[in-house]
Structures are given as C-alpha cells and as structure tokens.
Simulated scan of single mutants.
Amino acid sequence: MPSGTLAGVEEAALVARLRAAGCVFAEEEAALLLAETGADAEALEALTARREAGEPLEHLLGWAEFRGRRVAVAPGVFVPRQRSGLLVDRAVAYARPGAVVVDLCCGSGALGAAVAAEVGDVELHAADVDPVSVACARRTVPPGARVHVGDLDDALPTDLRGRVDVLLASPPYVPTDGVATMPPEAREHEPRTALDGGPDGLGVLRRLAVLAPAWLAPDGVVLLECAAHQADAARDVVAGAGLHATAEHDDEADATVVVGRREARA
C-alpha cells in the first residue's frame, strides 16, 4: 500500500475514534493531533487517549487559536472562548496607540494580547490569581507587557491608579449551580475560579465594577463580559459604581459586553 494511502487510513481511523468520543470537529482535531505528533505513533496514541477521556484539545496541543493567533495554554488553564472577540472589538475601538490597557482575570492572556496586537503601541498590564495561567500569559503577551499574579486589582502597580484608558475582563459569570451542567471539558479541566461567578454569576463582576473607577483615567472605560440574560443586572451594577453604563450584544457570537465609562468632569 502506498505511504500516502497508509497515512490516509491512519487519519480516517483517528477521525473515527474522535467522533466516537463525541468530538464535533473530529476531522479538524485529527489533523491537528497528527501535525503535533508527526511520525511519533506513541505520542499520537497518548494524546488521542487523553482526548477520548475528555481533556480539551487545546491543553493537549499547548495552545489555543484566538483572533488568528496562537495563545499558550496548559492543563488546568481556562481556554479562551471565541465569543470574547466582542470584548476585544470593543477594547480596540476605545483604545488608541499609547493607551494604558489592563486585562484582569486574564487567564492565558489572550484578550490583552489581541488588543495590543490590533491597536499597536499600548502599555499592557494583565493579571490573574492563578500562577499557572500567569505563566501562560507571560508567553502570550507581547514584549514589554507586564503580567502580575494576584486577586483582581491587588496585583496591579499602584502608579496605574487614575491612568487606565481601557480595563477589560472576562470574569467568571456562570452561577454556582450552573457549573455542574457545563461540558466536562470545562468543569473537569478548567479552574473553578475561572467559571464560578457566585450564586447569580455576577459576584466577580460586582467587585470589578466597584474597583474600576479608581483605576480609570477621565473618559476611561471598563468592559465586562457576561451572559445575555445578565446584561440588565450587570449594567445596573456598573451604573451603581458611578459610571455611565451601556450593554452591547452580538447575536451571531452570543456575546454580551457591559461598558462603563468614567466621564470627565467639565
């Protein structure tokens, strides 16, 4: 049998295994696993078995694709969601070259890195409470960006107070009772701190809304991702922190972002 045919048989068998394991995009995943392992049959078998057991493909590859770029991820790190593209779009629209941009609850650093790449020359700071995520973020953000370990703004340098032009975050916003209904890939392999937003899902968002005004520059904005059904409540929370609050939704991506602006005084 020609070698090309043999490779085709191997890929078809791999696709069948992945499809049987419930992988919706089995063909694409098979191609990525084969590219990752090359001719190493042992490595391919090991990764395939882990994928069949439910580990996220991104954890196996060591990277996730976001906005056309590879983002470093590791086992136990939150995998960036494509719906967060709306959050990046809004941040890019508000930021300008030279802007101070802060990505809180940064996880892998995907969002802040995308903003920096698409805007250009920004002063980027990112922070997360999870050291493993921070290690990934440091591999993802551009040179010159700074990534800090700590709980929300506790991690930030104090000289950023009153200077932040864009503060963005995709905080955990799944209600505690809803975590058990999430796909196994998320609830079993991503940190609980990146998923569980408290009883109504807005616990961390409330903390972010309260802390944001002290860090924002005049006319600075805070951008917070949430679920569509949380938009009204989240907007009220941001308005209650003294910011001009609006909510935006993208039906196609099923993405919602609440925008809070610190209006400059006349």
Rank of each mutant, 00 (worst) to 15 (best):
M1H: 13
E11W: 08
A12M: 12
A16R: 15
G22Y: 10
L33H: 12
T37E: 08
A39L: 12
D40M: 08
L44S: 11
L47E: 12
T48S: 09
A53C: 13
L57M: 08
H59F: 12
H59R: 14
L60D: 14
W63S: 13
R67A: 14
A74T: 14
P75A: 14
P75D: 15
F78W: 13
V79D: 10
P80R: 06
L86I: 03
L87D: 03
A99K: 09
D103Y: 03
A113E: 06
V115N: 08
V119D: 05
V122Y: 08
L124Q: 11
V129T: 12
A135Q: 07
R138F: 05
R138K: 13
P157K: 07
G162R: 05
R163L: 07
V166E: 01
L167Y: 02
P175C: 07
T181P: 01
T181W: 10
P183R: 06
E185L: 09
R187T: 04
H189C: 02
P191C: 04
D196V: 05
G197K: 02
R207G: 09
A209W: 00
P213S: 01
L216E: 00
L223G: 01
E225A: 04
A227F: 08
A228W: 10
A233C: 05
D236M: 05
T246I: 08
T246F: 05
A253P: 03
D254Y: 05
T256Q: 04
T256A: 04
T256L: 04
T256P: 02
R261M: 00
R262W: 02
A264F: 05
